[in-house]
């Protein structure tokens, strides 16, 4: 179960809405932060805290791709490979990151440091290629600076 701090954090969110169902998405983010991914245990915790049916929580959690339904590394790299990024070499970046940390798309490196996700457009076409590391945003990536950036995430 969540600790007291997390429960009060969720209760605070709950207080912002007339319907406790509305607090579900932000609560799932908190659960993902606490557990790393949305395991059955994590979803049960959310369901109990919000007094919502477990099945409803899972239905919602499984709809959105930014909720993780399997364990991930300590940091999640999400690289865009849609048109603008692709033209400016995003696929090459994916290969470089993969070679350096031994991680393939949808997988996690052996040391559990990074998970790699190929994501759809994040609206940074003018400054492509772009990526997200956890919740941090990076643009104008090059073959060199991407490794420097990732080096900061241990």
């Amino acid at each position: 179960m969540f600790n007291e701090t997390v429960i009060s954090e969720i209760n605070e969110i709950r207080g912002k809405y007339p319907d406790r169902r509305s607090a579900l998405l932000p609560s799932l983010y908190i659960a993902q932060r606490e557990f790393g991914w949305l395991s059955h245990e994590a979803m049960t915790c959310v369901a109990k805290t919000l007094n919502l049916p477990e099945a409803d929580v899972r239905g919602t959690a499984s709809f959105y791709s930014m909720f993780k339904n399997a364990p991930v590394g300590r940091h999640v790299i999400q690289i865009c490979t849609n048109v603008s990024c692709m033209i400016l070499g995003a696929e090459k970046l994916v290969d470089i990151v993969g070679a350096k940390y031994g991680v393939t798309s949808g997988g996690t490196s052996e040391d559990g440091r990074f998970s790699l996700v190929i994501m759809e457009c994040i609206g940074a076409c003018g400054t492509a290629p772009a990526m997200l590391v956890d919740t941090d945003f990076y643009e104008n990536l090059t073959e060199t600076n991407i490794l420097e950036i990732l080096d900061k995430y241990k």
């Binding site: 059955h40 979803m43 049916p53 477990e54 099945a55 409803d56 899972r58 239905g59 499984s62 709809f63």
Partner: peptide, 19 residues
């Protein structure tokens, strides 16, 4: 009872109980 829900989306959509 709210024991089941629609899981995932698009062509992957399916009905499942929580477990």
């Amino acid at each position: 009872a709210s024991a089941i829900s629609m899981i995932a989306r698009g062509t992957h959509t399916r009905m499942e109980p929580f477990t």
